[in-house]
Simulated scan of single mutants.
Amino acid sequence: MPALPTPLADTLPLPAGPADIRLIVTDMDGTLLDDAKRIPGELWPALAELRRRGVLFSPASGRQYATLARQFARVAEGMVFIAENGTYVVRDGVELSSDPMDGSVAAELVRTVRRLAADGVDVGTVVCGKRAAYVERTDEAFLAEVRRYYVEHRIVADATAVEDDVIKVALFDFGSAERSTAPALAGFAGTHQVVVSGEHWVDVMNRTANKGAALRGLQRALGITPAQTMVFGDHLNDLEMLDAAHWSFAMANAHPEVVRRARHLAPSNNDNGVLRTISRVLGL
């Protein structure tokens, strides 16, 4: 069994007093995972110890529920998955909450991206349903990116006619999502959330849907307070989630706005920052 992470140096600023942590929520890409998209091997013994102490560990990601469930299959029992940027929350295969979009909005997003692509932007749409993700692009470069985050995906002739509860529409831009695709979606920002969730990804969801809303609902359901919650994030889709926890940590590699919003700073994702911070705060 691998050793638990080495504690951080005493210079890491942390809140004073004992830590009564009941819930730990972490983003995946750029946060728990390193840049090679690997789960740290030290996570598994740490999760066993957290479970023994009665601390719930919850991944919160833009990734699909099916993808998260597969990644954590060995420890999935009892774990809460905050999937699709908070639009779909599941525990032991049972939906705890969801926030489906109007199908007409999803269809208009697909048509908007088709026009962007026709104008020369190298972008593709992923229509995210509860059962699967649906794509029209069939080139291997795009599908390789889709497979990273959407284990259950289907190629369809017309993504405007998906028969599923659509909970999010994700756009993958091979260039800079923040500079090209996101501004082109400004017309949706008045009624929906348009969130840059990574260097190449933009997610569009209901205005009421985000990781923070999902986390607050989970806290209410479990009777856990923000003071008993620890959260880790690195990108703009993590901001509301950070607001829902007293123990909020931005990764050292985080977007500048995330660093400003979080109460504390953790080492980078490539320095095992999530587990090193948990180890120190909880004395693993």
Rank of each mutant, 00 (worst) to 15 (best):
M1Y: 11
T6Y: 05
P7V: 13
P7C: 10
D10A: 14
D10R: 15
T11A: 14
L14T: 11
A16F: 03
G17L: 13
A19P: 04
D20K: 14
T26G: 06
D27M: 10
M28S: 01
T31D: 11
D34H: 08
A36T: 12
I39Y: 06
I39D: 06
L43H: 09
P45M: 06
L50N: 02
L50I: 04
R53D: 04
P59Y: 09
A60I: 01
A60V: 04
R63H: 11
R63V: 02
Y65H: 11
T67R: 02
A69G: 01
R70Q: 15
Q71P: 00
F72M: 12
R74Y: 04
V75S: 04
V75F: 12
F81D: 00
I82R: 01
A83W: 04
N85K: 01
V89D: 00
R91I: 02
E95W: 00
E95K: 13
S97M: 13
D99F: 02
D99H: 14
D99A: 12
M101G: 00
G103N: 09
A106V: 05
E108I: 07
V110C: 13
V113C: 15
L116F: 14
D119V: 02
V121K: 02
D122P: 02
V127Q: 06
C128H: 05
V135H: 05
R137M: 11
D139K: 12
D139I: 07
F142H: 09
R147P: 01
R148Y: 10
R148W: 06
Y149A: 08
Y150F: 15
Y150A: 01
V151D: 15
V151E: 14
A157Q: 14
A157D: 15
A157C: 03
T160F: 07
V162R: 00
E163C: 02
V166W: 00
I167R: 00
D173Y: 06
F174G: 01
A182C: 12
A184I: 03
L185V: 08
A186E: 14
F188E: 08
Q193W: 12
G198R: 01
H200I: 05
V202F: 07
R207C: 04
N210D: 15
N210Q: 05
G212M: 03
G217C: 04
G223L: 12
I224G: 03
A227T: 10
Q228G: 02
Q228A: 13
Q228K: 05
T229K: 06
T229D: 09
V231R: 06
G233W: 11
D234E: 07
L236R: 09
E240C: 01
D243K: 08
A244G: 00
A244T: 00
H246M: 10
A250E: 08
M251L: 15
H255G: 01
V258D: 07
R260V: 12
R260F: 08
R263K: 15
P267E: 01
N270R: 13
D271M: 09
N272L: 14
V274Y: 04
L275W: 07
R280L: 12
R280G: 03
L282S: 10
L282G: 04
